[in-house]
């Protein structure tokens, strides 16, 4: 038996909303330590990795007697989650050899209980081994700032060049009709930690990425006040949104390589 009771249905809603356009079908791997999801987009350029730890406070109850994989169409799941109120407590439930995933939404006042079942799918997805490496540069910034940068620069071109150096980070776009550049200076003196821009630099990195994917990743902005970008030359960028009281959602994007 698998049963996970999440105190905030809005968290799961936001996760699925941020994933469903790039990653339509995905396997939720459930174990006693929590729920993970790894999926590639159809062009095999981007990868998402979600981790929700069972021992974090976001779960009121968590039980997973044996490891199970729940193959779910995320577009359908998003439709089901739209039936839940933002403050509802949400319970996910499945048997040990499941064909069905059950969603139970309990309203805060206890007056309404909704139950939805969806059929599970057999999804043959390739799991990749993501190496645990140290990155040359880690930039932490307000998540809405990153969203704005991606959105602004995507008006002018398809790819952004991210240039991390010791003063800060530059985002540049050069399109056929014009070009743009946004410089972010390191700023760790502002009061609120979530408003800070910090750059941990071991080595300078200059790398180009497709804006289409970065813009898609920023659909996760409402999950977290901050986002971190981890870069190493000629390797995928990691865009990580911490999820309070649960874990994190990471996106990996393969770089554009100069010919």
């Amino acid at each position: 038996m698998f049963e996970a009771k999440m105190l905030q249905s809005s968290v799961l809603k936001k996760i699925i909303e941020s994933l469903k356009d790039l990653f339509s079908d995905a396997n939720f791997d459930c174990s006693s330590s929590g729920i993970t999801l790894q999926d590639m987009d159809s062009s095999h350029v981007a990868l998402c990795y979600l981790k929700l730890r069972s021992d974090e406070e976001g779960f009121e109850d968590y039980r997973c007697d044996r490891n199970i994989t729940l193959g779910v169409n995320l577009v359908l799941m998003s439709k089901i989650l739209k039936c839940a109120g933002n403050d509802d407590v949400i319970t996910l439930r499945a048997e040990d050899e499941p064909n069905i995933l059950t969603f139970i939404f309990d309203s805060k006042n206890g007056e309404r209980v909704s139950k939805y079942d969806i059929k599970l799918m057999e999804i043959d997805s390739e799991l990749l081994g993501i190496p645990d490496t140290e990155y040359s540069c880690v930039v932490k910034m307000p998540s809405h700032e990153f969203q704005r940068i991606c959105s602004n620069l995507s008006q002018l071109g398809d790819s952004v060049t991210v240039d991390c150096h010791k003063e800060g980070v530059d985002f540049k776009v050069a399109g056929e009709q014009g070009s743009g550049a946004i410089k972010l200076k390191q700023n760790t003196t502002v009061d609120k930690e979530e408003d800070q821009v910090s750059v941990e630099l071991n080595e300078a990195v200059t790398q180009s990425f497709a804006l289409k994917f970065l813009c898609a990743f920023t659909k996760a902005t409402s999950l977290s006040d901050t986002v971190s970008l981890s870069l190493t030359q000629d390797t995928p960028i990691v865009v990580e949104y911490p999820i309070a009281q649960h874990g994190y959602l990471r996106f990996y994007l393969a770089p554009k390589i100069e010919e």
Binding site: M40, S43, H44, V45, A46, L47, E126, L127, L128, G129, I130, P131, S159, T161, A174, S208, A210, T235, P236, Y252, L253, A254, P255, K256, I257, E258, E259
Partner: peptide, 14 residues
Amino acid sequence: KGTQSKITAFFPSE
């Protein structure tokens, strides 16, 4: 600018 690489080129299949 540049050629789009695949994520599978960086992370091994498990």
